[in-house]
Design a protein around this nucleic acid. Sequence first.
DNA 1: CCGTTATGTCAGTTTTGTTGACACATTAAT
DNA 2: ATTAATGTGTCAACAAAACTGACATAACGG
Lengths: 171, 171
Amino acid sequence: MADISTRKVNPLFLREEELRQGIELLFYAYRDFTEVADQMLAQYNFGRAHHRVIYFVSRNPGITVSDLLSILKITKQSLSRVLGQLVREGFIEQKTGVQDRRQRLLTLTEKGEALERELTEKQRALIAAAYREAGAESVEGFRKVMMGMMEEKDRKRFEDDGPGGQRRRAG
Amino acid sequence: MADISTRKVNPLFLREEELRQGIELLFYAYRDFTEVADQMLAQYNFGRAHHRVIYFVSRNPGITVSDLLSILKITKQSLSRVLGQLVREGFIEQKTGVQDRRQRLLTLTEKGEALERELTEKQRALIAAAYREAGAESVEGFRKVMMGMMEEKDRKRFEDDGPGGQRRRAG
DNA sequence: CCGTTATGTCAGTTTTGTTGACACATTAAT
DNA sequence: ATTAATGTGTCAACAAAACTGACATAACGG
């Protein structure tokens, strides 16, 4: 069977290629997206795990430990090592919850905020450039595809209800 | 300053929110995309690193070790451990290059092809569902944004020159 | 022949994740 | 009021997947 005739009788051929390109787009983009903060992280002797924690605490001030765990999808023992470091070194503060005093609500200190801005700066710039090149319509398409790939539960974080929408819920 | 007036005088506010949403879209989507193959991988006592190697060898049959390294962006020592396992267990074959006999050209065995299909099946299904929900226009937007985020060098892998376009170059 | 390239390997280390067990304080339920 | 469940933390051992640095071999290219 020649290539062309296969494509005629098998409409799934192009689709398969399209899906594989999707897999690779995701791989290459994520690979380079994570890479841009590495140099800065190394200067603080931190890794990508620290960045993720700092980022999501910055994004969800007052988040509980368990909510942070369900975002990161790692074990509390894994989180503990990284979070403990960040607390000890004064980047993150823990306050006992008011309604539920078992909770340890996490917020960034001034120092933590400063580090967060430094760390995320290049990632933001990378996305900004990609958005600019691609155009507003493409960004909306990107949004839709990404939302379709994530766990249904997390999609509501991105509901289009204004800039405060994200912050209504912590996890 | 009230929220609304801030948004009026500071056009960067929404942009900042949009960029942060972009960061998170990428995080959540990639988190769940990688997760779907884990159960299958565990059955073979393999990890995500094995999957990446199998995937890219499947996608670029006859790829050289150094080209594979520049896709994965890891060290040869890291690759060696994972690749060695896959070769020893009969999933990947190494053939000496013909024009350049220093090269070890990598291809999947039958067994390797079978495993690759099993492993990638769920990821393909996840992307297919996301593409279906989002629609063809959104997929094109997704494509553009992702390409803008990756290293310029890798963008040519996705040039729209038919289904063979990807395979013309290995790395 | 000699410098460079492609690959592999030995040895040690780091980061980031895992399981399992247990402790403590607090909240919720019976 | 006692008991069960929840939120958090911690100790210990382990595993996956990355890293650095050094060195070795074979083959290519001028």
